[in-house]
């Protein structure tokens, strides 16, 4: 059964690597739902967090194919239950909607969202959460007019306690043969 799977890829960020990463997905006709590139806890090692809808069997094969790439250090796959994950969404609304007494303020409050910035003509609301939560806020703000909307890719922290550096030192040992 296809399910939401989060793939984490670790690499020393090299030019062209993003292409190598993405072709591993596209050649298998796996659609990338979100992609986030960031640093990791280890200096010099970058992390790609990729959300896809695939089966566990496909996830295993995909991770093996990714790890086969010379410049990829390590890759993991996670079910949603294996991770704590969030996305961040920003909503641009007319300034009037955020004036005192506006019912939209109550919506923002109830969603534990916050007003990031209020300018002369518009305001920006920020909401961090799972996709369903940021979507629900969107639905409820829509009647007040959303001028612009953006949601980041998923960021995720894994539950297992083994650290990346331990995996990497195992690999380091194995590559010395």
């Amino acid at each position: 059964m296809p399910q939401q799977i989060t793939i984490a890829v670790f690499s020393e960020n090299k030019a062209g690597l993003l292409h190598r990463v993405t072709t591993s997905f596209t050649r298998r006709k796996i659609n990338i739902e979100s992609l986030t590139v960031s640093e990791s806890e280890i200096p010099g090692i970058h992390r790609y967090t990729i959300v896809v809808e695939i089966t566990e069997d496909e996830a295993i094969k995909l991770v093996h194919a990714l790890e086969k790439q010379i410049d990829i250090q390590k890759a993991f796959w996670y079910r949603n239950a294996d991770i704590i994950h969030r996305e961040i969404a920003l909503y641009k609304v007319r300034a009037e909607a955020m004036q005192e007494g506006s019912p939209a303020l109550e919506v923002v409050d109830r969603h534990h969202a916050r007003i990031l910035s209020v300018e002369a003509e518009f305001a920006v609301i920020q909401k961090t959460g799972r996709r369903e939560a940021t979507h629900q806020l969107f639905v409820e703000l829509e009647p007040y007019g959303i001028l612009e909307f953006v949601r980041s890719g998923r960021v995720a922290i894994s539950r297992p306690m083994k650290e990346l550096k331990d995996y990497l030192s195992e690999l380091h040992f194995a590559s010395q043969r």
Partner: peptide, 11 residues
């Protein structure tokens, strides 16, 4: 004779 984290001959 080696590339970081590339394991040509698995143990």
């Amino acid at each position: 004779d080696r590339v970081k984290s590339y394991v040509p001959r698995p143990v």
